[in-house]
Write a protein that binds this DNA or RNA. Structure first.
Lengths: 222, 222
DNA sequence: TCCTTGATCTAGACATTGAAAAGATGGATA
DNA sequence: TATCCATCTTTTCAATGTCTAGATCAAGGA
């Protein structure tokens, strides 16, 4: 009974709507910013009616919250990948930080959605768990560079250690300043220059860190 | 002709609407967040019709842009006041940074409006000039602590100096992490604890700063 | 085979929003 | 006094988020 409609008419059921809506929403906030997001436009881009998203995400904030959680998943993966193959504990922290900044530069709208948007439900378990995972990698990698062990901590707790807090604030500050446009262009050659600046900052920060040895090899990379 | 209406009926002309609208808008974003702002609600709180704001600010973004500019004016004043009476150049940088973080804690919605909102017109001259003034104080005060002189620079230019960039990122990162709720409560005793943590971070940062001596006293605090 | 169930999606309605247009008000100025 | 014009209101319109009722369709049971 569905022989003639297979070609042209679109099926009543999308079949894979949730991921399609997330992809549409991601493209949308990239195009028009987080503030330019509308649920109806996202539905439009996914080719469904304006009421369809409700069945998968509840309301508009639900969709954005899931999109933010996906962002944390990506950030976690990016950080993990950035340190694979890097053996020097200090260098691992640098690479991880640069992947953090790089993620912000590559996905500025999603980054802002994740960290500085009032449109997501921060109490969501899905979101909190995804956020914790990203933070946990930072914490473990940084602890290894300091030569200390650390049990799983919440960000709130970890923020009480000035050394952790300082490193965290540095990286997060670099990322936010960059995507806010305070540091100049973030695409093309501007992006490369920003990463170089971030590398200089992070290496300077790490050089003064461990109590044991201070390698004097300064690669300001230029 | 305006004798009997003086008591109860409100006058047709507000008389001082622009500041009243700004005050209403400020209260509104404090109550409901930047995303909860609506032009009509701001007008409602100011006691005028929903079309009145247009005559003073153009559109909704115009009002918010002015509110952000006022925020930069306040931040500038706060930074200026924080360093008055403080003679030690290094301590001036610490106090200035704490006033920056303190401003964010006291006006989180306005701070987010100023730095991480897509709803303001960043090309506005009024906004840019106000933003530059706040940045200029930071730059001059920090340069004095380093023992260098610095001619007026745009943030873009200043961001190329890793030492400046690092200090800037630290302070901005502390402020943003705090108001994003990543560091725990920001009011009551939480606020005091946050300021203490920020002080520890900034003093550690400044201790390692000048090229002259490197005191090895590491106060990891706790 | 039929038909029932539940998940998925559409269509329509409603209150709210930002903006534009046209008119009302009243202080300032000549 | 008469005119001007900045200020403010009223009306209107398209767009938005959410709700409700109904349409579609696959899968499983009688």
């Amino acid at each position: 009974m569905s022989r003639s409609r297979a070609r042209k008419s679109k099926p009543y059921h999308h079949g894979d709507l949730a991921p399609a809506l997330l992809a549409a929403a991601e493209q949308l906030i990239e195009d028009r910013g987080v503030e330019g997001f509308t649920l109806r436009e996202a539905a439009r881009r996914a080719g469904v009616s304006h009421a369809a998203p409700a069945h998968h995400f509840g309301d508009a904030n639900g969709l954005l919250t899931e999109l933010a959680a996906v962002g944390f998943d990506r950030l976690t993966a990016a950080q993990r990948e950035a340190i694979t193959g890097v053996t020097d504990p200090t260098q691992r922290v640098v690479e991880m930080g640069l992947s953090y900044v790089g993620f912000a530069l590559d996905h500025p709208a999603q980054f802002r959605l994740m960290f500085s948007s009032g449109r997501i439900e921060r109490t969501s378990d899905r979101l909190r768990i995804a956020g914790r995972a990203a933070f946990q990698i930072f914490l473990e990698t940084f602890a290894a560079a300091r030569g200390v062990v650390v049990e799983p901590l919440t960000p709130h707790e970890a923020g009480r250690d000035p050394v952790v807090l300082r490193q965290w604030a540095q990286v997060h500050g670099l990322a936010t300043l960059a995507i806010e446009g305070q540091l100049g262009p973030t695409i093309g050659p501007g992006r490369k220059r920003l990463i170089e600046s971030a590398r200089a900052v992070l290496e300077a920060a790490l050089k003064a860190l461990p109590t044991r040895k201070e390698s004097e090899s300064r690669r300001a990379a230029l």
